[in-house]
Amino acid sequence: MVANKFELKPGGATREAFGKTLVELGRESKDVVVCDADLSKSTYTHLFAKEFPERFFSCGIAESNMVAIGAGLASAGKTAFVSSFSAFVLNKGFEQLRVTAAYPNVPLKVVGTHSGISIGEDGPSQMSIEDISLACSLPGFSVFSPADEVSMAAIMRLATAHPGPVFIRAGRAKTLVVYGPDQQFEIGKAIELVTGTDVVLIAHGLMVAESLKAVDLLAAEGISAGVVDMHTIKPIDREAIIRAAQVGAIVVSEEHLVDCGLGVRVAQVLSETKPCIVEYVGVQNTYAESGTPDAILDKYGLRAANVADAAKRAIARKRG
C-alpha cells in the first residue's frame, strides 16, 4: 500500500488568501485598484478598503456596472480587480465581461468568491456551479481555480502580472492545505501531486484535497491512483492530460456542473489526442439546496468516496 505523502492540514479559505494577497499587491503597486459590490466583508476586499480607501471603489449592489467600471479602470492602465460572489459577478456581469473586457482584450482581474455549492445554507441563488463554463467562454480570459490558500496567493500574483484578463475562482469554506510554502506555480502548468499507475484523478479547487484523500481510500484496495491539480483551467495543460491518459483511466472532479466544466475540456483534449476512459464527479444537471456545507457536499456527491467510486468504475471499464 502506497501511503499518501500528503498530510492535509487545515488552512484558511481561498477568499481570505485572496483578500490578504490583494493588500500585499496594493502595497507593491499604486496602480492596484479594487471594485466591490456590497460584499467586501464576505470577499475580504474590506482589508484592501481599510488600507487603501482612495483606491477602493464601492459600487453598491450593481455587479454589471461594477464590471464595466473595472474595465474602464483597466483600460486606463490600472491593475483593476472586480470582485463579488462568483454567481453575481459572472452571471449579472457576463455581458459586460464579454464586451468591455474579453472582446477588447482589457486586462481586467475578476475574482469570484463563494463558488461551488460548499457555501451551504444560503442555497442555490448564491451558489455558483456554472462560473468555470462562463469564464472559459470568454476568448482571451485565463481561468484559475486554486485548491488552497498557498496556491491562491501564488496565482493572484501570476494573474496580476499576466497581461490579459483573468477569472479566479475562490471559495467560502476553509480548505485543507495541499502545498508547502515553496511550491512553484506557472500559468497553464498543472501540478502532478501524486503519480499512479491504475488511474489518474484530475481536479480543481476543493476537489484536489478530496482526490488526495481518495488516493488513500484506493490504496487500501490495492489501487494506485495519481492526482493532478488543474489549477489553470484555461489555457489548459494538454501535456499533463496526455500524460494522465497513459494509465488508461481518468476521473475529473469539480465543484461545478459536470456538463460544462473542466471535465468536458479534458475530454476535448483527449478526443483530439489520446482517447481515454473518463469518469466525471461534479454537480449533475441540477441546482443544489440549503444545508450545512458538509451535508451538501455529501448529498451532491463531492467527497473522496465519490472520487474513489468513480475511479473504480473507470478502471472496470478500462479492463472491459
Binding site: E121, D122, G123, Q126, E289, S290, G291, T292, I296, K299
Partner: peptide
C-alpha cells in the same frame, strides 16, 4: 437545514 422546505432563500 438539509431537506427543509424553509430554504435559505425562497425556493
Amino acid at each position: 437545514q438539509l431537506g427543509s422546505i424553509y430554504q435559505g432563500h425562497p425556493d
